[in-house]
Design a protein around this nucleic acid. Structure first.
Lengths: 114, 114
DNA sequence: AAGATATTTCAATAAATGTTGAAATATGAC
DNA sequence: GTCATATTTCAACATTTATTGAAATATCTT
């Protein structure tokens, strides 16, 4: 991952609403979720949301596809992994000082009973 | 780590010069290095550098101490670790899907011979 | 085609950001 | 105390950012 891309990804995540949006999409899993559902969940104006989605998309952190009249946004796990990889690669003078970080989507699970 | 702090740390790192500065300080180790040395290494105006140091400091990513007329800046590894922890904690729907990430300063080593 | 729904586009605006140049401050050397 | 060195402070400026409101576009339903 190029430094330029790292800065872009960091900048994309370095904003309250976008960090929320991205985390929501990550939890939603690889299938993603429609823009409207994100808007409702986070109480954001649809046009504001479009703006933020664009940022995340430009940074390669999310993808979009159309499904009927909905736009389905999904987290791009690979980019997140690359970002984490870059940060940890360089966290100790270029020496890999940590176990490899890998971030994979999680299938929905039943809640762990108390 | 609070979300506010995460956003602050991400924002601090999401800038070309600051990412360079931080990486340089990380490589410099816990002893840190004087502002002037950073300025020379990265070819930055001293006042510009002060501006960026402030950002990093406010985000808790670096510390300063005075040594004679020099100001010694040092990377704050704990904050970086917390940031990585937050990002990986939330990277899979709040489930810890990765081994714990830990970033420790590295002692200077001899170059590995070819 | 008409109407409703989902999302985007556009223009306007306030606020934050990064850089520069000039001047100030703090420390150390003489 | 005077001078040089190291860094910070301040004001100015151009740029980017996030949000809003109004209008446009695309898709589906009837």
């Amino acid at each position: 991952m190029e430094k330029t891309d790292v800065v872009a990804a960091l900048a994309a995540l370095a904003q309250d609403n976008r960090l929320d949006i991205f985390r929501l999409l990550v939890e939603a899993g690889p299938e993603g979720m429609p823009a409207g559902a994100v808007a409702t969940a986070l109480d954001l104006a649809p046009n504001t949301l479009t703006f933020h989605f664009d940022r995340l998309r430009t940074a390669g952190l999310v993808t979009v596809r159309r499904d009927g009249r909905s736009m389905i946004y999904a987290a791009q796990y690979e980019t997140m992994n690359s970002l984490l990889g870059y940060l940890t690669d360089n966290c100790c003078g270029g020496v890999q000082c940590t176990p490899a970080v890998e971030c994979k989507p999680v299938r929905k699970r039943a809640k762990i009973p108390a």
